[in-house]
Simulated assay, not measured.
Amino acid sequence: MPDTSPLLAVPEEDLADLRSRLRRTRWPEPWPGTGWEAGTEIGELRRLVAHWASGYDWRAHEAAVNALPSHFADIGGTPVHYLRFDGEAPGSLPIVLTNGWPSSFLELTGLARRLAEPSRFGGAAADAFTVIVPSLPGFGPSPQRPRLAADEQTHDLWHRLMHDVLGFERYAAQGGDLGAGITSRLAEAHPGSVVGIHLMAVAGPPSYGDLTPEERTYLASVAAWQAEEGGYQHQQRTRPLSLAYGLSDSPAGLLAWLVEKYRAWSDSGGELAARFDDDFLLTQASLYWFTGTIGTSFRPYYEHARQLTPQVNRVEVPTAVAVFPADLAHPPRSWAERTYNVVRYTRMPRGGHFAPYEEPALLAADITGFLRPYR
């Protein structure tokens, strides 16, 4: 018999504990005149914390998450949560969507619905996909992998889910951030099954050789971004557990860590409300809080730094690259072509790191146009 229990069923005492912790937040002494320059601005965080403690209706959002088409698969002893949106047309091409950090499966649901039922959004039913959205190990509903990445790679879990569990002989894949790396390794390792990949970030080649002026400018911009914005990555790569203790104990601290990224990495112009409403941000934070997975979400950074995940060498599977103006990096086509068989390269007019949520229509159209010849 299939498991019909809800994905989320937070006990009332856990909800009361969260609200109590939020109301008892011990706030640091504010600095004069820094705004967001030194980190999350205290006035905005106080406002969100007060709403999370008193106005935010977790039960309504819990019910909405539970209404999603959730499933679990046991893949060699590793439980994997995933959403399945069946395509509206017979024989719809399967596609697996993979999020990055600090995102979750929830950010991908709007994009998934557009891809699965394009006629609802002004598209053609013939362009429908059957969309699979797995939760990364250690993110929300999927528990962390019981083994080190060197022994169990996420991209291989995805192939076993798509090919062995769900029975898809051919499928496509899409991802950004961490999801772009997983998607890239999936295509490199399983080119006989993966018909095409769509990326919002690209892996660099193992060696550079001669660089074009555009590529030199790009690498300089990456270095400048790392110097200004990369502190989170260095901490999560080197001493993630020291950070995890505090964020797992303080919901205000957890929210501060997440909200800073949503503001800085989106096409928001510095205004969170331009892209994200309060309840969306608080639901994302609540998913991490109630599942206790903020610390395990850091594992990909730590394992990658210790070379427990493989370098992407050369991907011959047809590849599309979409570059969003407010994303973390803007690789030129020539840079992507050093590693990938790039057949489509699009500079988007708007959107950022959270493009599946910020600009689902733009992204769905680009994925659909790219994959139409490979159905």
Rank of each mutant, 00 (worst) to 15 (best):
W31Y: 13
F72S: 07
E228P: 07
S250M: 02
Q236K: 13
M1W: 08
G33Y: 04
Q235P: 10
W27H: 00
E41K: 05
R84H: 12
S242N: 13
R114S: 05
A201L: 12
A220R: 12
F139S: 14
N313V: 01
L211C: 03
R113Y: 05
D278R: 08
G351I: 05
L166M: 02
G246H: 12
P28I: 07
P331C: 10
W257R: 10
A252V: 03
A223I: 05
Y218D: 06
E188R: 04
R185A: 12
S103H: 11
S286N: 14
W52V: 04
L328A: 14
S184G: 08
G196A: 06
G110P: 07
P134K: 09
V10N: 09
E214C: 02
S242Y: 11
L166A: 01
H61I: 10
T291V: 07
R26P: 07
Y82T: 08
W335E: 10
G270V: 02
Q233P: 12
E13P: 03
L7I: 10
G123H: 06
D249T: 15
P11D: 09
W335P: 01
F72W: 10
L45S: 00
E271H: 11
A220F: 06
S207Y: 01
L166E: 03
A172T: 10
A73E: 07
Y232Q: 07
R59V: 13
T130N: 11
S242H: 12
W36G: 07
V259E: 15
S20L: 07
A273I: 01
V312A: 08
Y232L: 10
Y262W: 13
E29T: 10
W36M: 08
A38L: 11
G138E: 15
Q307Y: 10
G35S: 02
V259F: 02
A227P: 15
P30N: 00
E215K: 00
L363H: 09
G270S: 06
T309Q: 15
T98N: 14
N341T: 00
H155E: 04
P325S: 04
R263Y: 04
E152H: 11
F290G: 05
L371I: 03
G35L: 01
G43F: 01
F105L: 03
P79R: 05
S207Q: 08
P11C: 06
D14F: 03
W31H: 13
W289P: 12
E88A: 11
H51P: 12
A180R: 09
R120W: 05
Q144T: 14
A128P: 04
W52C: 10
L258A: 07
A64Q: 05
T293K: 13
G295L: 13
H190D: 09
D327H: 06
V259A: 05
H198D: 13
A116Q: 15
L111V: 11
L161T: 14
P325G: 01
E152N: 14
L148M: 12
L111Y: 02
G122F: 00
W52S: 10
H353T: 08
G369N: 14
A274V: 09
I367W: 06
T98I: 15
Q153T: 04
